[in-house]
Computed example of a mutant assay.
Amino acid sequence: MGLRHPEITQRVSQNLTTARDNVTERQIRNWFSEIKDYLVAKNLFEITKCPNRVFNVDESAFYLQPKGDKVLTRKGEKNVYRTGNDEKECITVLVTANAEGIMAPPMIVFTYTRVPGYISANIPESWGIGNSENG
């Protein structure tokens, strides 16, 4: 690449589902505002000050299809995404912890209607297994 357009380079893109690509900052702020309003209306807002009752869940999607080829992007770009990836071609792992630092066992979410026995037999007993339409 290089000499003709030194500001452009080739990188391998990260997969990004269309659903995640379409979320805006405004939608996220509105969601938090709605949750706060709900907790206040139900007289439950005080639970947010109790660290063992405040949880965070992070999900990691493991795509079952390979990443695409390299794409062109500006040099120094931190995140390079490929959108439009089929959400059904992944499994998801959920990791949950509370504000005190206590972690729950991981949960693996599959797209199967019933998780095959040979898979569930190889997952640690303390882990959770679930399913959803889109993994």
Rank of each mutant, 00 (worst) to 15 (best):
D86V: 06
K78L: 14
K75W: 00
D86E: 03
V23G: 10
T48R: 08
K42E: 15
R26M: 07
F110S: 12
S13M: 03
Q10F: 13
Y118I: 02
S60V: 12
I123L: 04
K36D: 15
G2E: 14
I108C: 04
D69F: 06
T73Y: 01
I91C: 13
Q14V: 10
S33T: 09
Q14F: 04
T17K: 09
D86G: 03
D58Q: 12
N52Q: 13
E87I: 10
N43P: 03
T24W: 05
L44C: 11
K67E: 06
S33H: 06
R29M: 07
D37A: 12
S33P: 06
S13Y: 01
T9H: 00
K70A: 07
D37E: 12
S33N: 13
D69G: 15
W31L: 12
V12F: 01
L39P: 11
N85H: 05
I35P: 00
S13T: 01
R20H: 08
E125G: 12
A97D: 05
D58L: 05
T18H: 09
N52I: 07
E34F: 07
R114E: 13
K67A: 06
N85A: 13
R82M: 07
L16G: 13
W31A: 14
V93M: 14
P124H: 06
R11Y: 02
G101Q: 03
T92M: 14
R29H: 03
T24R: 08
N30C: 14
